[in-house]
């Protein structure tokens, strides 16, 4: 991740927050607007961050992942359905992650074992996810009267702070979220916190552990890894599936944390934006996180602008993240080098 890109990201976020403050009605304090912008940014960036990390594991091991969208959509559906039927948040969350992992396993099976073009394999997963979630949504949710909201399943920091063990971590956060102006920033829900923690964990795993060294080697020069006795196929399978589990967590954010309902195509391209964040972040956890925050800020601006009744069509403002993505991948702001062996199925003679 180049310095130019970091500065670019910082500048855009500052401009967006500034614009929100400028557009806000005079009855609102500027600090309040900025804090709410930051809070929304962190929230909206959660699935993007998780999707980015999902792609990171996958692509660092040399497998292109454009199936983040499909994995998240599947997980959003499965997590919601299991949560609604069992009325258990934890089971829903685990099911979501497992379903993301299953889709990833399919991706690995197609692209690593059968050496299908990785982009086609990813597209197949996306289409399969659209089809399956549409069909079973109709079968399992729309036609029956199941609901998740009634059981009050979406967790809050307060509720978590009261629980044993994990309460230890969430108590200080809960305390922070009570502070007046900056409170909303810390008042994030658990998956949002997990996403941030995972950014640090991923950085550590990738650059300071055996696993990370091998993953990077397999993504850069699989044959070299093979000649020192590293099983390229196993490493790729494992990393793709780890990515799938994280994408599953990202999918769970939509239906178990953000808005407790499922509708077809609900991820609406955020898996692809996560991928763009990964590319913009130069395949590094912190770079990708910064890029995810940038897209999050753009979305936050959109929702704030709508709230303030800005006289620009919501459709137009809604286009900002997509437009930003194009600008970003066009390499207008610096260029990053992807893992060298990305996209090439490993062929052992």
């Amino acid at each position: 991740m180049t310095r130019g890109r970091f500065l670019f990201i910082l500048a855009v976020i500052v401009v967006l927050i500034g614009a929100a403050m400028y557009l806000s009605p005079s009855t609102l304090e500027n600090e309040t607007v900025a804090a709410s912008m930051l809070a929304t940014t962190l929230g909206v960036a959660t699935p993007l961050t998780l999707g980015m990390l999902a792609g990171l594991f996958c692509e660092r091991s040399g497998v292109v992942n454009i199936a983040i969208e499909g994995m998240m959509l599947t997980a959003a559906f499965v997590g919601y359905t299991v949560g609604a039927y069992t009325q258990s948040l934890i089971l829903g969350l685990l099911a979501a992650m497992a379903s993301g992992g299953m889709m990833a396993l399919l991706h690995a099976w197609l692209s690593v074992t059968f050496k299908v073009d990785q982009i086609i394999s990813g597209t197949v997963i996306n289409i399969l996810a659209f089809g399956l979630t549409g069909y079973f949504n109709d079968l399992l949710l729309r036609r029956r009267d199941v609901d998740i909201q009634s059981a009050g399943l979406t967790p809050t920091i307060e509720s978590l702070a009261d629980r044993p063990v994990i309460g230890f971590f969430f108590k200080p956060i809960d305390a922070l979220s009570d502070v007046s102006v900056i409170g909303p920033i810390f008042n994030q829900k658990p998956i949002a916190w997990m996403a941030i923690i995972l950014v640090f964990v991923t950085h550590y795993v990738l650059f300071y552990t055996t696993w990370g060294l091998r993953t990077r080697a397999v993504g850069e020069h699989p044959h070299a890894a093979d000649t020192v006795g590293i099983n390229v196929f196993k490493m790729r399978y494992a990393n793709v599936v780890i990515g799938g589990l994280i994408a599953g967590l990202g999918g769970a954010y939509f239906t178990l944390e953000s808005t407790p309902q499922f509708e077809p195509l609900l991820t609406s391209g955020r898996g692809f934006i996560a991928l763009a964040a990964l590319i913009f972040g130069g395949w590094t956890p912190f770079g990708g996180w910064a890029a995810a925050l940038l897209f999050g800020a753009a979305s936050a601006f959109q929702s704030n602008a709508q709230q303030f009744g800005v006289p620009i069509s919501a459709h137009i403002i809604g286009m900002i993240p997509y437009l930003l993505t194009i600008i970003v991948v066009a390499g207008v702001v610096g260029r990053a080098f992807p893992p060298a062996a990305i996209g090439q199925p490993y062929q052992k003679e």
Partner: peptide, 11 residues
């Protein structure tokens, strides 16, 4: 919607 599933499987 099963058509979408079948199409994905074909693919």
């Amino acid at each position: 919607d099963i058509i979408a599933v079948i199409q994905a499987l074909i693919l």
